[in-house]
């Protein structure tokens, strides 16, 4: 989903001991994307601070929902999709703001921007890293809801919709959190910026997943699925075009 058709395919940088003074060519696109994503994953594997807080937050949100709504078996069935998506969005927003804030506070954002790679490669690397965390949280949540709410959520179609939904959410979320990270009240600004923009994703995803959960025929949800895919493509394209302007200093 992050293939860039116009990406540069120049050869990797010459060995460091080469004496010629010349501009270092760009690292191949996909390798740069992979390196950024892998860096995020490794940092997370060592510190585990983001994924721990996201998973704990998820568990607590499910607790709050079942206590606040006093869910019986009937109510659980009708609210489970809402609980799923609200929790994914909130936990995801939490993770997104941490991901970029940590990068900026440690000063590693500047280092990344100095690297001889395309700016959009950095962006897609960050998106893939964030996507893996959000998807992981979503999967944990789906298992959790399957167990606690006694409703089977682990279905191929539902997983597909969760993947499509999180792709759209993380793409626009990563772009916006790279802006909100420079703001004064960044933790509160990100949700305000993100919620209205990602609403097309949320609406389609919620409708499609509740239709699938009710075992409705595919004619009931195929339009939502298509809408979700279209919005994802629009967001990926838009973020690809705009990210360069956000991080240009």
């Amino acid at each position: 989903m992050t293939v860039n058709p116009t990406g540069p395919t120049k050869k990797p940088a010459a060995s460091a001991d080469s004496q010629t003074v010349q501009r270092r060519p760009l690292t191949p696109y996909m390798r740069a994307v992979g390196a950024v994503a892998w860096k995020d994953l490794r940092a997370e594997l060592r510190s585990r601070e983001m994924i721990t807080s996201m998973v704990l937050f998820t568990v607590m949100t499910v607790m709050v929902f079942s206590l606040a709504l006093e869910l019986d078996a009937e109510a659980r069935k009708s609210t489970v999709v809402g609980v799923l998506w609200v929790t994914v969005v909130f936990a995801g927003t939490l993770g997104l703001s941490r991901s970029l804030a940590a990068e900026k506070d440690r000063g590693s954002l500047d280092a990344l921007l100095l690297a001889p790679v395309e700016r959009s490669a950095l962006f897609f690397g960050k998106v893939i890293g964030n996507l893996i965390f959000v998807l992981l949280v979503a999967l944990v949540l789906m298992v959790l809801l399957t167990v606690l709410f006694n409703i089977t959520l682990i279905e191929p179609l539902l997983v597909l919709i969760v993947i499509l939904g999180t792709v759209g959410f993380t793409t626009v979320g990563t772009l916006l959190s790279s802006m909100s990270v420079h703001a004064r009240a960044r933790e509160t600004l990100l949700p305000i910026l993100l919620m209205p923009v990602m609403m097309p994703v949320l609406i389609s995803a919620v409708r499609a997943s509740s239709a699938i959960l009710d075992d409705l025929p595919s004619s009931e949800w195929i339009a939502e699925l298509r809408m979700l895919a279209v919005v994802d493509v629009v967001f990926l394209l838009g973020a690809y075009l705009l990210f360069g302007f956000v991080v240009e200093e």
């Binding site: 802006m179 420079h182 923009v197 705009l242």
Partner: peptide
């Protein structure tokens, strides 16, 4: 710069 970027994104709505 950010306002210009967000103004473009918000047009999705």
């Amino acid at each position: 710069r950010f306002a210009a970027v967000y103004g473009i994104i918000a047009f999705a709505s």
